[in-house]
């Protein structure tokens, strides 16, 4: 036990003293989280802005409702010019009882939205002017749909990816560098098994994964990004650990074949990057074509992602862990077994 403890401590020290590894483990995925988080922050949240010339009861009603954002202009020509330049989708010009809307032909979706809204308010005002009670009424209410705000799917995706990268690289580079520097030979000449030495490295990777989880989620929850965790977020912990084991096994396999650190790095990238893109790290897979969704199901990262999404933001319970956990464990067993078969002590 003391041997295992000393070894784990040694690996841990080696890890935190390596600035390059620290960068790729923490800062690199965080950069993606921050950049994508900021770029996509306002997607879908934008209200349509239109130009308004003049004032009146309809304009006041529009402004109060907040359905559109109004930009006032005193000059009609200036307002229309804005539409012609493509800066605004429409201009609303009020001449007493007469309302003119000039809209850009190119942006039909926004124009239709503007026309519909303005029309609605005009009809309502007309109806009110007649003094008749409305025959039909309707009420609206917000529904949480399955599509998520970007930060909600970015955080679980980038976290899974970050954990996968650090576990694959951690295992592959450790193995290759130990083989090259004959540390493996030293271990072979000592009365310990390679398994006990490698599991101390795995322990470090598992610890790293938990710290990654805490850091990434913590930063995404800052008001700037606005991640909202579901109540069952703690179910992500077993998923992080299982993911670490699965991707560590994958790294061992890469490390068994690669002869140099450079080759190991390249091979690990070739394995991890496409998998990350196809598994929904940077965009939700359900927006991808159906065939791609099917392909992505062969990647363990896809299932880890799904599990992370379900427990971190979708608020699903422990049953959401079953499928991802089974796949990660199975993957770890199969790949780990192959890795142990092709394991090489010497160059």
């Amino acid at each position: 036990m003391t041997a295992f403890k000393t070894l784990s401590l040694a690996m841990f020290k080696g890890f935190i003293r390596d600035k390059v590894t620290l960068f790729f483990t923490f800062l690199f995925p965080l950069m993606f989280l921050v950049i994508f988080g900021l770029i996509l922050r306002d997607v879908g949240a934008d209200k349509t802005r239109i130009a308004v010339v003049g004032d009146g009861p309809i304009v006041s009603a529009l402004r109060e409702s907040g359905a559109l954002e109004l930009e006032s202009y005193s000059d009609e020509n200036a307002a229309v010019q804005k539409v012609k330049d493509g800066d605004l989708p429409a201009a609303l010009i009020i001449r007493g009882q007469q309302l003119d809307v000039r809209f850009a032909q190119s942006d039909q979706v926004k124009s239709a939205t503007v026309l519909g809204i303005v029309n609605g308010f005009v009809d309502k005002a007309n109806l009110a002017a007649t003094g008749q009670p409305p025959r039909f009424t309707f009420a609206s209410e917000k529904v949480e749909d399955a599509s998520l705000k970007p930060i909600q799917y970015l955080t679980p995706g980038i976290l899974s990816w970050g954990v996968a990268v650090s576990a694959v690289f951690g295992a592959a580079l450790t193995l290759v560098s130990w083989r090259r520097k004959q540390v493996l030979r030293r271990i072979r000449l000592a009365p310990v098994s390679a398994t006990s030495v490698l599991s101390s490295r795995l322990l470090v990777s598992a610890g790293v994964a938990l710290v990654q989880g805490a850091t990434f989620v913590g930063i995404a929850m800052l008001p700037l990004f606005g991640l909202k965790l579901s109540g069952s977020w703690w179910l992500a912990i077993p998923l992080l650990l299982l993911g670490t084991i699965a991707f560590f096994a994958l790294g061992m396999l890469v490390g068994a074949f690669a002869k140099t650190e450079e080759a190991a790095s390249a091979a690990a990238n070739i394995v991890v990057l496409p998998m990350a893109f196809l598994s929904g790290t940077f965009f939700p897979v359900d927006q991808a074509p159906a065939w791609l969704q099917t392909v992505s199901k062969i990647f363990p990262l896809r299932h880890m992602n799904d599990g992370m999404l379900d427990v971190l933001v979708r608020g699903k319970g422990i049953e959401a862990l079953l499928m991802p956990s089974a796949i990660l464990v199975g993957f770890a067993l199969v790949v780990g077994f192959i890795a142990s078969r092709v394991f090489k002590w010497e160059e």
Partner: peptide, 21 residues
């Protein structure tokens, strides 16, 4: 060069010592 990464002289010895208990 066959040492563990980034460890001091003393830590190297302690770690290799740990392999032998």
């Amino acid at each position: 060069s066959s040492f563990f990464e980034k460890l001091t002289a003393k830590e190297q010895l302690q770690t290799f010592g740990a392999l032998y208990g």
